[in-house]
Amino acid sequence: MMGQVIFIVARESVEALLVIGILWAWMAHRADARSGKAWLLGGIAAGFALATLLALALVGVTTFLGAAARSWFEIGMLSMAAALIVQMVFWMRKHGRTLKRDMEGELDRHAGRSNWWGVFALAMIAVGREGSETVVFLYGSFLQLQSVASFLNFFGSAIAGLGIALGLFWALQVGARFVSWKWFFRVTEWMLLFLGSALFLTAMGKLLSKHLSAFDLPGWVYATVWDSSDVLSDSSMFGSLLATLAAYRSQPIVWDVLVLALYWGTVVALFGWQKRRCGVTRIAAA
């Protein structure tokens, strides 16, 4: 029972702590790190509020939106988080590489401010979505407790689970310090982009099965593209972690592949455009 509490809490917190850990480490490399961290912490706090609100609805205490509206809300949150991740990486590629010099202009400062809203929203969604599930799990398990001993054991386990996930956060901060910034950024931007693809795929999966299920889409949309569940099933421990963090699927259908192609196509097009434009500015500046 308690091993299970540790495992579930750690597993549910990994996604949020990956996002927060990377954003936090990126902040440390900026001239305006202080205000950035404040926005991030604000987002985390707002995320806890959102998690509680969503959990109340899941438990059935409140009827926060109907079932259909709630799933639209969830699709919206997931898609927005994916979009924010792409936007964040895009922005960091432009500003993060040159680091401290470029926040001097007034215009840049303005751009920075709107980006902080992005940081805030991303942290809020990351904590709020998975957090709501953790709250439901902990609250439900909490109701089963009988004795003071089990009570203490339970809280200890929950904290241990969070501690394991915090280890990831810590590892990212250590990594940021000891690995060169160039490499750290290069690795973490890909981690975030993969996470974005996973969020977008989950969102579109919900769209397909909850809102498009009434329509008869052509049969090939539902056709299985490959089946690698014998090699690595996305129901296994490692497979499902990979599914959460990198959009791995062991039995994807054509829809899934199209969704991922759309995501990565957009990312490549966007960054290609950015690279060309930056190249042009550099020439113009020289």
Binding site: L58, E133, T202, K206, S209, S229, D234, A243, Q251
Partner: peptide, 8 residues
């Protein structure tokens, strides 16, 4: 994951 379902 394989049937794209998730419900708390």
């Amino acid at each position: 994951n394989q049937m794209r379902l998730e419900e708390v």
